[in-house]
Design a protein around this nucleic acid. Sequence first.
DNA 1: ACATTTTAAGACACACTACTCTTAATTCTA
DNA 2: TAGAATTAAGAGTAGTGTGTCTTAAAATGT
Lengths: 149, 149
Amino acid sequence: MLLSKSCMYGLRASVQLAGMKGNTYVTIRELSEDLDISFFFLTKVLQRLTQAEILESYKGPNGGVRLLKHPGEVTFLDVVTAIDGSCTLSECALGLPGCGVMKPCPLHDQWSILKENILEMMQNVTIAELARRNSGKQGLDGFMYYLKI
Amino acid sequence: MLLSKSCMYGLRASVQLAGMKGNTYVTIRELSEDLDISFFFLTKVLQRLTQAEILESYKGPNGGVRLLKHPGEVTFLDVVTAIDGSCTLSECALGLPGCGVMKPCPLHDQWSILKENILEMMQNVTIAELARRNSGKQGLDGFMYYLKI
DNA sequence: ACATTTTAAGACACACTACTCTTAATTCTA
DNA sequence: TAGAATTAAGAGTAGTGTGTCTTAAAATGT
Ligand code: SF4
Ligand code: SF4
């Protein structure tokens, strides 16, 4: 699996938040129900996004989490690195000690291109764009489309 | 990490074997020392390749493992699937339940192309080709180049 | 002040990967 | 036939990711 489950959950939550009108606090309980993710686990994941200053949290009644930055300025990669650390793409094909550009493994030329493509996509796609693509499917809001039925 | 350690080790061993003259049995002990991999762990990994009929093993003195097929007919993907099962690429970006072509997630169009590129590379690159690219580096055989110095 | 709502933080269990070691089975050689 | 070499199979350990729960802290409203 390229991305960890924590990452996927964080992405789903971020996109869901980006797709909501206004930027009010949403409870993690509500998010977890909409996205069909364990409340306890999602709480842990979103704490990392809060620490990374991608989300902002507020305790107490009417509290919850919300996006701290404009969704157009938060990239797919931002969320992934906030959760999984500096990306799962650091090592790769043969995982040789001390490999790299100076000492490329026999797959490096091809592999580094593929890796670059993935990284580029992650850097170019914002959660605002994902939310936009995700809106208005069969009248169901956001990810409900996938989960219901 | 895209590939498991077991996979990387299996690939390194396969490429090393493909790069050797003749197709004689090589002891796992020797392979483990050349590739700087734990003997015990490499034994486990290579057992899977033997079960998958990519390698052939022979017990006793002068025994060891060797390639069963011609290295030009064993792809990168063959080795990966033999070890990690039907590939780490099955799920991906958002890992939504019931997603896919009919119900694409907001990243599917871009992501499926990247995924296809990786799969294509894995299917097109044989261990013979990797061994060829890996030969004759600074006079050191195969992966010794990376490990020594 | 007090009860309620909500996130934060930490402890815990489970599964899986990575790794280690022991024993059994097979084969060769003397 | 005895002993050494070698892989096969299985048990055991450590660490990490995933998931659950409990307690603490903060904010609200009465
Ligand atoms: S040489 Fe390049 S492709 Fe090969 S393992 Fe290192 S970073 Fe990856
Ligand atoms: S819709 Fe496509 S890209 Fe998205 S998670 Fe499913 S298979 Fe992956």
